[in-house]
Nucleic acid binder design. Structure first.
Lengths: 339, 339
DNA sequence: CGAAAATCTGGAACCGATTCCACACCGGGC
DNA sequence: GCCCGGTGTGGAATCGGTTCCAGATTTTCG
């Protein structure tokens, strides 16, 4: 109810001067500025960001599209994004994109495009070229996180390399019977993360000259998922490998829990390695490759901010590959009968 | 760049008619409407919600304030809110409120108030009367989730009752040496959830005439937190209780993991009960009290929507107490030497 | 000392919609 | 034949700011 005009009247200045005084842009004499500020404080004035956005064309709001909220990686990324964004004075509007294409189209057509957001950060979602084109044609920077996408800046780890590194660690310890418990290729997840990690796994095996047999199980990407499958797998001594390379730490933890329940000693009878460095990895002594989603989120925001500041030019497309850190803990060791 | 005026010109009508045709409000002849719609589609027109908000005073956007994103309860609630909101055609703008009062004030003054949101949902955050007053004076509905707050509608479980129920279950099995591992009173969390659960716990003990000794440990509200403390606690056979009532499922799971590591049989040597029905509860066979945060989130949105639709009247303040469901699994049984 | 530059302020246009009001037209009831 | 109510449309005001421009005043400096 209190508009800029009221403040101006109260301070005895014009709207334009009041605007300048409050936004801090342009020339305003100090006493005038103070008068305006006092008036604004007195009637509890706050700008209407709608009105401001309308004329400036900027919303100071970033849209974030994400497939899950409730998984470690995504929640962590979101936290990183949120802190960085709020720090930069930006709002964060959240859209969860399910696999339903209809709902997906809706989010795009109905929400993202309406000049509500200045930029978009897509997490773990492979935007279609048409979607990217739509956003770009509106001059909105887009940054992807979780995998490489053509036509926009992205930030991610190298999934093939990560899986390979993890597998090589097991091989170097002397393991020959290694299995990979990774995500189902059909599970809702873009970027073929699952497929890539499987590729990296097999690459390492091939390089070491280990012949591949029954080396892969598809599991839900969660602790419970890893647990279920591992219970089955590990209870058959003939099937049981000496080491498991899990598609992510959650699966790895499920495997460890299952192994313990079956009376298997980790790492003596079974080595387990994951990827992520989940909050719980420390507690379970899990050897893993650390990726810091929280920092990735923060960096994604920085990329967006840079594009936003150099607006006009669509800024060079960057493809940032986040380095992984090997975290040695207690879940891997040499296999039982290693020579 | 394409404004309503362009659509109007292209369709050969006035701005007002174009607006009516596209929004579907008011009289428009069918052929005219079709012409306008074709024109809009042709140039890829989308309304500017800023402009619309400016005149209607509605943003179709709800602000959600939340202290954590990556904890089960909060992530779950958030998912529930998001789906329901998007379904109702509303955006969700996310603000994480840390305990830092300065940052908190900033979020309020700088973000929430700026006419960017039509309503606010506060999760697990005890809004101060001044904050509530501020929001209410702007005519914005507020709904709280996670505990009762004066002056606004809220939705929550009865924490005292929950803890009492859980404890009574253990008592009814014959346990006498029961401990509560709950949240630290100083940990960042409003609503005194921790204190209330402790109260419920002791209430049940008192009612059963069990004298209280060393019956409580403060732990971080997480799996790792429960684990750490339980490792200490359970390794001393003289200290060790026959049952543990955990402040939440995450703590309970940490306790179970610790117990297993120490070679204790759950439930034979140690019964454990939690509160929540966490995703992992099933896997660990945890007996617990189910609260469905996802549904709570959905219901919170419904409350908000109701207030929004009957706008003008500040709608009666409701205090919804969400019922809990007892979920019996395998982590509780009679104590070892029960008569 | 005078011209140029810097500082300060107000008026008015503008962003892009919604909506009120006036007007025109048509059919029906008396 | 007249009046009334329901349709259909355009003009103009409005929401609440930002910003361009012009004019006034002061400062700087050759």
């Amino acid at each position: 109810m209190s508009a800029l005009a009221d403040v101006a009247r109260m301070a005895g200045v014009s709207k334009s001067t009041a605007s300048r005084a409050l936004s801090g842009a342009g020339y305003v004499a100090l006493p005038t500025r103070e008068r305006v500020e006092r008036a604004a404080a007195a009637i509890g004035y706050v700008v209407s960001s709608n009105a401001a956005s309308l004329v400036t064309g900027q919303t100071r709001n970033v849209g974030v599209v994400i497939p899950f909220i409730n998984r470690w990686f995504f929640a962590e990324v979101l936290e990183g994004i949120e802190s960085t964004l709020i720090h930069a004075g930006y709002d964060l509007t959240l859209y969860r994109l399910s696999s339903d294409p209809e709902q997906r189209r809706r989010v795009f057509d109905y929400f993202l495009v309406r000049k509500r957001v200045d930029a978009v950060i897509a997490i773990g979602i492979e935007l279609a070229p048409s979607e990217i084109g739509l956003l770009r044609s509106l001059g909105k920077p887009i940054v992807g996180l979780g995998g490489p996408i053509d036509g926009m800046s992205t930030l991610s780890i190298d999934d093939v390399e990560a899986a390979r590194l993890a597998t090589e660690h097991l091989i170097s310890l002397g393991h020959r019977r290694i299995m990979h418990l990774g995500g189902d290729q059909f599970e809702q997840m873009d970027f073929r993360v699952h497929a890539q990690r499987l590729t990296g796994f097999r690459l390492a095996l091939d390089e070491a000259g280990i012949e591949r047999g029954d080396d892969f199980r598809a599991v839900p990407f969660s602790i419970a998922g890893g647990y279920e499958v591992a219970r089955q797998l590990l209870s058959d001594p003939r099937l049981r490998p000496t080491a498991i390379m899990a598609g992510c730490d959650e699966i790895a933890i499920g495997v460890i829990v299952a192994a313990r329940e079956l009376g298997l000693d980790v790492p003596r009878q079974l080595s387990v390695i994951g990827i992520d460095d989940h909050d719980l990895a420390e507690m379970f002594g899990l050897t893993t490759l650390r990726q810091e989603p929280c920092r990735q989120g923060a960096r994604a925001v920085e990329l967006v901010m840079r594009e936003l500041s150099t607006s006009g030019e669509p800024a060079a497309i960057e493809r940032v590959v986040v380095p992984l850190v090997f975290v040695a803990r207690r879940s891997t060791t040499a296999p039982p009968h290693a020579g």
